[in-house]
Design a protein around this nucleic acid. Structure first.
Lengths: 207, 207
DNA sequence: CTGCTTAGAAAGTGATTCCTTTCTTGGATG
DNA sequence: CATCCAAGAAAGGAATCACTTTCTAAGCAG
């Protein structure tokens, strides 16, 4: 017959880390698109242009794989830590980044992961959140506040913890509800109408 | 043979609304216990002490049934509307009622419903929330604020909408994260450290 | 160049589960 | 009491899907 079929491009084999990353990325995309319950190992293999056996060589079962895919997405999509020189702009930037980078994706993934993963892994949504979403997020937030504290903008010791976490709780809430990035106006509202007025009570005299 | 077997109690047949309520209640319990993905029509039938055909005579498929079960739970578990005579205690009561009545149940159900139901029904979590959770909740909330407004405690027109919804957003957020009722201390913190300080800016002079 | 690991294709197994169908009989209705 | 609708039991069809097995050959290590 003919040496090469016209419609069949040469397919290179991937190996090691490169292949693994492609598998996990495909798993993530599938998770976002159809959700955990409708996600099948075959659909992932097809999307990654490989076969199921390659998946099962690396992960014992579907749940392990999905967990790994979520974790992999988090590791490869770090949220930038802004340093704009002022608490308000720092917060706006951080919340926007958090929203745009994660909303939709994390929201769906977290929601999708809940029903299926909870039953099998015994994790609570909060644990999933800790493991997949906020693991590297919280230290960053703390940094923002500490910088503001050092600049003398706020007195960290006098602000209730609920105030400090509130902006992030609300962003997370909105993401879960709408499955898409927050409107900039909403983020500004959270900062300007909710957070800053509360912090203002504890402002050190700046000038 | 013998007329009645010792271990076989007489099984009465249920009909109409009574049967339907039992089916939906069983569906709800199953949803809360194992989640949408692991819920089967057979397990529901067993729990309701009936058979699958009874289910399929009333609902076209699993998704329709689950949606109906969620709606039924909401209809049969209204949240009380407190009237304590003051905004703060009204809010505390409302948030506590909302939390205790719905947390765990709604959280799991909503989360469980997401992955499976979203794909099939095309609903977003926000729509599920509107349809199943807050449908009758929001008017109640409005009532609380309007009473406070009429008492002269607050000036509704001058308070940003974000402030008014914030306590409920946070309760919903915490429920989704922890799948259990909020600690009373957390509710108090939301009201006393977040909500009231923000409202206080717009308090009319009471005395 | 040689050999060994493993990617990738393909087929299949077994379990689950949605949904249907058939049949018997309880019990509501007149 | 007679009639009839529907409850409940039981069995099965058909599809899906997690996971396995087998085989060929790609491409890295020596």
């Amino acid at each position: 017959m003919v040496v090469t079929e016209a419609s069949e491009p040469v397919r290179r084999r991937r190996h090691g880390k490169q292949l693994e990353a492609a598998l996990l990325a495909a798993g993530w995309d599938e998770l976002v698109e159809v959700g955990y319950a409708r996600l099948t190992m075959e659909s992932i293999a097809v999307r990654a242009r490989t076969s199921e056996s390659v998946l099962y060589r690396r992960w014992a079962n579907k749940d392990q794989f999905v967990l790994a895919a979520i974790e992999h997405y988090r590791n490869t999509h770090p949220v930038a830590v802004p340093d704009t020189g002022a608490l308000r702009s720092d917060l706006l930037a951080q919340l926007t980044a958090m929203s745009e980078a994660l909303a939709g994706f994390f929201a769906i993934a977290a929601a999708a992961a809940f029903s299926g993963l909870l039953a099998d892994t015994g994790l609570t949504p909060a644990q999933v959140r800790d493991r997949a979403i906020d693991a590297q997020q919280l230290p960053h937030v703390r940094v923002i506040y500490e910088r503001a504290h050092d600049r003398g903008e706020i007195d960290l010791d006098r602000i209730p913890a609920a105030v400090l976490t509130m902006p992030f709780d609300l962003v997370r809430h909105d993401m879960l509800m709408d499955l898409k990035p927050l409107e900039p106006a909403r983020i500004q509202s959270i900062v300007d109408e909710l957070f800053l007025p509360l912090v203002r009570n504890h402002l050190r005299s700046k000038r």
